[in-house]
Design a binder for these strands. Structure first.
Lengths: 195, 195
DNA sequence: CGTCTATTTGAATGTACTCAAAAGCGGTGG
DNA sequence: CCACCGCTTTTGAGTACATTCAAATAGACG
């Protein structure tokens, strides 16, 4: 199994004994996904939290013109799920799709609830996780407010150096909030003087 | 004291007994602030989490041109603080300033740590709080990516109906990521046909 | 009342978008 | 293994959304 990876991930914030570890693992469902396969469809209710073992996902909304807007990428060791839908039981606003062949662990809402009650340390674990995610989101909002598209692109490259190789430029443009055409222009300008 | 308000707020997510309640309250420091007073200055380290009893705050960054970019407003019953600085001990990236005369409770990092350890229910409380905040931030990012300035303004009015009366348009423009001049144009257009 | 700041207005400008088409690249089937 | 097909990326011209700068008007506060 791929349990070692997620246990190592959890161990970054909390320490589990053998019983707690086994209980946690027993709640996880493994799922492997093909490229382009849909994990959560807009309009459906999201009943699970998902941890990415391998591969990379995108979560995006689609506007009335049919344009995608990528809210987040989820590569290895990220948790994802439509949190809004998961918490409220209302339909998801976002689609979540595998960009590559992927493997994930899923935990259902009732099982997560049981986990919280049986091993309260997980309250702490997810508290820390959400806290960190929130910091990152504030940072992204600040960037969107204060930087030009070109600066945001450079920042993206610095922040996720490995990701640019794995993902289409089209998706990066969508994440940055610009069109692929404009990203192309930015890249041309950035190229000048290099190699 | 203003303890009733924050206890009512906490009671939305967790239930405390009398001892826990008293311990929690004993960790809070009260502070009252004047309009325009600075709570957290960019570059300083943020050592507290803050709960707003009364009044309204803004958190913003300042870019190289001197423009403000408002990351969040914090009216009554909101928690604020530079989470990044609070967690890492590094300098704040944002300024937090009272927009009105205000009253707050502060809890220091070591006291919050003690609270987590003494009353683990608070792990759950803040887990839920951060979770909800995260949902809101994803929604805001989605809006910034997919909507025009005009649509975002209308959404802002719907989402925070009371706030527009209390806050300068300049600040709303900064929150929406546009100039005050352009917000003025949007409002003129929106006016047509009304009253 | 006067001063300071917020808001509006307008003209010129810039940043990013749309639409259309060409070029590049990757995967798949023959 | 090559050829083709579909999708990504680039290019370019014209356009739209939003900004800058300057100035006038309106409000708020002491």
């Amino acid at each position: 199994m791929h349990a070692e990876q997620i246990l190592k991930h959890v161990a970054k914030h909390i320490t589990l004994d053998a019983v707690e570890r086994d209980f946690f693992i027993s709640l996880l469902q493994f799922r492997s996904m093909k490229k382009k396969e849909i994990l959560i469809r807009e309009g459906d209710v999201c009943h699970h939290e998902h941890y990415v073992i391998k591969g990379c996902f995108k979560s995006y909304s689609v506007d009335e013109k049919g344009n995608e807007h990528i809210i987040m990428f989820a590569p290895e060791d990220w948790w994802m799920g439509d949190l809004y839908s998961f918490l409220t039981g209302k339909p998801s606003r976002f689609n979540t799709v595998a960009l590559e062949a992927a493997e994930i662990f899923m935990i259902s809402k009732p099982d997560l609830q049981r986990l919280y009650e049986t091993v309260p340390k997980f309250e702490r674990f997810f508290r820390i996780l959400f806290q960190s995610a929130l910091v990152a989101q504030f940072h992204r909002i600040d960037q969107n407010l204060s930087m030009t598209a070109e600066e945001r692109y450079v920042e993206f490259q610095n922040r996720y150096p490995q990701l640019e190789q794995r993902i289409h430029l089209k998706q990066i443009a969508s994440f940055l909030g610009i069109t692929p055409e404009f990203l192309s222009i930015i890249r041309r300008k950035g190229m000048r003087g290099k190699e």
